[in-house]
Amino acid sequence: MRRRRRIFISRWQNWLGLALVLTFTIAALAAPQISPPNERTVGAFKKVGRSSDMTPHPPSEEAILGTLPGQTDVFHAIIWGARDAMIFGLSVAIGAFIFGSLFGAVSGYAGGAVNNLMMRIADAFLTFPALAGVVFLQQIVAVTIESMGGSYWFNPDTYGDMVYFPFTPPPFAVFLMKTNPVLISLILFSWMPIARIVNTQVITLKNTEFIQAGRALGAGPVWIIHRHLLPNAIGPAIVLAARDVGSSVILQATITFIGLGGASPWGALLSLGRNWVIGPGGNLLATWWIFLPPTLAILLFGVGWNLLGDGLAEALDPTASINQNPT
């Protein structure tokens, strides 16, 4: 453990990654203290002036990072967007991690034809483009809600779906309205690498002596998976999951930006201010407070989690030495 810690703290990149992730964590946890909402706040969007005023205003006392057209506070959306991003990213990563490692472990433990079949299924998921999955799931939800008697619109301007029921919606419909199709489809399309790594580890570990010994002592399969196989196979899977946090938030922002749902506040900031992102004469910095804050937030969030993943990969790799040549 101490060796791992020493490897981790020996590189400045790991410190940077840790610092970035910590900053976003603090922003996410302390969002109500850093930027208190007012009475005209919906989600991450706080109005600070007349909504009919369609000119973005530069930073002022009231809005530290200026406003969007329609007087939405940029700073507020960045801070509360960090909370959304953290929740979203961690949910995807944890979901993919749990599902992937269970799938991989069970399949590897079963071995033989079952393993072959299960890994084929994992491969089939690899051929599915996430964007098609997002749209497909959204449509399934929409069609189901319509068949229950509700009305469903997808509204690109509010970055999400709108559901209307002429009567009290049945519980299943309420559940569907609360689920986020983008979240589910990102989990569905990011667990395969984790499953594969855990699977390979489990297959190699299965025939080692301490597992055989456990078998001989009468340990059941659940006990062996839980007690021996998962702890040994978990390191590389954690690394993949850490990188997933960043990449899934970036994909969510992308989907929101192109208007296919996802409800990422950071992506919505860029999309709401899209007429002002590029200022007169192609100057990206003329109204810099529209372009830079969300861009930097998305970029640094991704970079932070990636650096952290790289650092963990090195620290958890048993063959790594402290002063090895960085690749």
Partner: peptide, 16 residues
Amino acid sequence: KAMRGLPDAPASLGFA
């Protein structure tokens, strides 16, 4: 186009 407005199951399934 299929996501603007009403649900359009054939288009999204076909696209997938």
